[in-house]
Structures are given as structure tokens and as C-alpha cells.
């Protein structure tokens, strides 16, 4: 028989042992996740409608060697390090060529120079320029951009109704 005076001692050890069996040790750790600044300029996959609109069924407009469109690119820019390259990407259909004509612009938080006017052909080509002095998030009325699209005669004849849309993406990397 257990002597009654030993019961509290036994209960104490049973309690402490139960706790020890539950948790032996604990380690608090930490590390940092550092996200390199990536500035999103404008929206991804912006679609630009050419002017005048192409309507192959009506045969309007009459084929010329180029069409053009001008638009203002609205954007939000997030913090980015100085001299970060600004990448332009245009997804163009086969048979199309294009040229850029952009102007420097001044966002609220600093000076930004967009890519100089350039020409490229083919698909998924990249143009890089440098973006300066951004800090914070700034809204701007937009970047003036003119794009001229050249179409071959054959391509124009078979142009589908939805092909006069371009996917343009902008991002600072």
C-alpha cells in the first residue's frame, strides 16, 4: 500500500513527467525573405486597338503599308532601384512589324525615361531602357506611345477580325 503522505509527491512527479513527455525542447528561428524590387509599369497584356479599325470584309481601309495607333499608357509604378532596366515586350503576330515612338515622361516621384524610339520585327522582342530615380508609388496620366504596325499585303487579305489587337507588356526588372 502507498502511504497517504506519499500521494502528493507521486502526483507532482506524474504531473511534471506528463508535461516533459509532451514538450521536450523548443527552438525559435527566423530568416528573411527579400523580394528584389520589380516595378510593374502599366498593366500586363494591355490590348491596343489600331486606328483606323481594320475590317477585311468591308475592305476598309484600303491596304496601305502601315497602320498606326497612338495611346496613353496608364501605369502604376512600385519602388525600384535607380538605373533599373525597363523591359518592353510586344507579342506580335507573324507577318507584322512594328516600331515604337515614345517620349520621356515625368512621374510624380522622379524622372523616368522610357525606351527610345526603336523598331523591331517578329514576335516577343524586347526593348530595354533605363528607369531613373523612382521611389514610392506614383500614379501618372500616362505615357504617350505611338506604335506603327506594318502588314504585308497577304497578311492584310487574311487578317482575322481579332488580329488587330496587340498584347503589350511593360515591366521594370
Amino acid at each position: 500500500m502507498i502511504h497517504p503522505s506519499l500521494l502528493p509527491i507521486l502526483a507532482f512527479f506524474a504531473h511534471t513527467t506528463a508535461l516533459a513527455q509532451t514538450l521536450w525542447a523548443e527552438e525559435n528561428t527566423s530568416f528573411d525573405l527579400y523580394f528584389e524590387p520589380l516595378a510593374l509599369v502599366a498593366v500586363n497584356q494591355q490590348e491596343i486597338q489600331l486606328a483606323p479599325p481594320v475590317n477585311e470584309n468591308a475592305g476598309f481601309p484600303a491596304f496601305t503599308d502601315s497602320l498606326s495607333t497612338a495611346f496613353y499608357l496608364r501605369y502604376t509604378i512600385s519602388p525600384v532601384l535607380p538605373n533599373t532596366p525597363l523591359i518592353h515586350r510586344a507579342s506580335l503576330l507573324d507577318g507584322l512589324s512594328s516600331s515604337w515612338n515614345t517620349l520621356p515622361f515625368l512621374p510624380a516621384s522622379g524622372t523616368c525615361t522610357l525606351a527610345p524610339s526603336a523598331k523591331h520585327t517578329g514576335t516577343d522582342q524586347f526593348l530595354a531602357s533605363t528607369i531613373y530615380g523612382h521611389s514610392g508609388t506614383a500614379l501618372h496620366d500616362g505615357i504617350p506611345v505611338v506604335i506603327r504596325i506594318g502588314l504585308s499585303d497577304k497578311k492584310y487579305q487574311y487578317l482575322a477580325a481579332d488580329t488587330h489587337w496587340l498584347n503589350l507588356t511593360y515591366q521594370c526588372l
Binding site: 516533459a20 514538450l23 523548443e26 527552438e27 528561428t29 525573405l33 524590387p37
Partner: peptide, 25 residues
Amino acid sequence: TLDNAHVSQNVNTTPVYIQYQLQEG
């Protein structure tokens, strides 16, 4: 692994705190 991160949401430095516990059984 880091899952479901987005350029527009994940910026700058984020400290990650992880607690490890060693239990019997």
C-alpha cells in the same frame, strides 16, 4: 517552397519566424 507569391503584393523584406517543437512520442 514559397507558394502564391505575387509581384504586386510581395515587396521588400519579410522576416519569417518559425518555431520548432520537439515532443515525445
